[in-house]
């Protein structure tokens, strides 16, 4: 119950609650589609509907068979393995290049700063189909099409803008006198970087890395053009499955991915709090 001042009119009260109902409905629209697949993935049948048994909460209506399918199918396992092998390496590349560049860009005198920034953000802006076809033709020419490294490079490109954005954001509040202090106390540039700068921008680097990771882990357009059968990833497999042979196994995979994103989200939230604490930005 909201605590209204005595002069609040009935209309205002009605609006107060009406507004919350509307917002509740929108939140429902946001979250329900993601949540609805979770119970469906425990469906004991091959269909996508809530069976009467499920609605009665009868244990017989539920089963782990779709998870078993996922774990036992060599195709899904290969896809999982590929995803796990591609995303971290692509992330590492994006984070390394991206962090260095973000530090470079954060200096006071950078010629063509805007243009450079625009180029570095552009992989996020250029429609994926254009990047994908461009890479498809060019990587074919240089022998990268259909290879593991082709996909890793392509995914690193996609991850770069996220790293640039998040690291630049943490560098905005960075106090340059800290590095000067470190230098005046005798630390070399490398030592200064790892002991002073890095711990402070680390939350930005990690959250940029998480974005890059999830981008690679979730990417399907580029992988379909640049990759070949041997590199089929989870999203690719899901795409084919959705188009051709929808089985609730896809929902089991989807549920696993939702859990994964909840985990990542938690990590990110903890990082944000830590970053605020370190930088002394205390929440009001």
């Amino acid at each position: 119950m909201a605590d209204f001042p005595s002069y609040t009119s009935t209309g205002q009260k009605a609006w107060h609650y009406g507004f919350r109902v509307i917002c509740g409905a929108i939140f429902f629209f946001l979250v329900a589609p993601i949540v609805v697949i979770i119970p469906l993935s425990f469906n004991a049948t091959m269909f996508f509907t809530f069976t009467p048994e499920m609605l009665r909460l009868d244990p017989a209506g539920y089963s782990l068979r779709h998870y078993r399918d996922f774990l036992e199918s060599p195709e899904w396992q290969r896809a999982l393995r590929n995803s796990i092998q591609i995303a971290p390496v692509a992330t590492l590349l994006a984070v390394t290049f991206g962090t260095l560049a973000a530090i470079g860009l954060s200096q006071r005198h950078v010629p063509f700063k805007r243009a450079i920034m625009a180029v570095m953000i552009s992989p996020m802006i250029v429609p994926l189909i254009i990047s994908a076809t461009g890479m498809f033709f060019f990587y074919s020419k240089i022998g990268l099409q259909g290879t593991y490294w082709g996909i890793v490079l392509a995914h690193a490109v996609l991850g770069v803008p996220f790293v640039i954005i998040t690291v630049t954001a943490t560098l905005v509040g960075f106090d340059n006198s800290l590095t000067r202090a470190s230098a005046s106390l005798g630390a070399g540039p490398v030592r200064t970087f790892f002991k002073v700068q890095m711990p402070l921008i680390l939350p930005g680097v990690i959250s940029g890395g998480l974005f890059a990771f999830i981008t690679s882990f979730d990417e399907v357009v580029i992988v379909m053009f640049v990759g070949s059968a041997q590199q089929q990833t989870l999203p690719w497999r899901m795409f084919t499955g959705l188009r051709e042979q929808i089985s609730p196994t896809i929902l089991a995979v989807a549920t696993i991915l939702v859990v994964l994103s909840i985990l990542l989200l938690t990590v990110l939230e903890l990082l944000r709090r830590r970053s605020e604490r370190i930088r002394g930005v205390t929440p009001a």
Binding site: S140, Q145, A229
Partner: peptide, 20 residues
Amino acid sequence: WDESSAEAVALLRAQSEAGN
């Protein structure tokens, strides 16, 4: 196995153009 027969002509053309 690669499930790409539906796009076989396109992909083979690209592969051959690239010599790979």
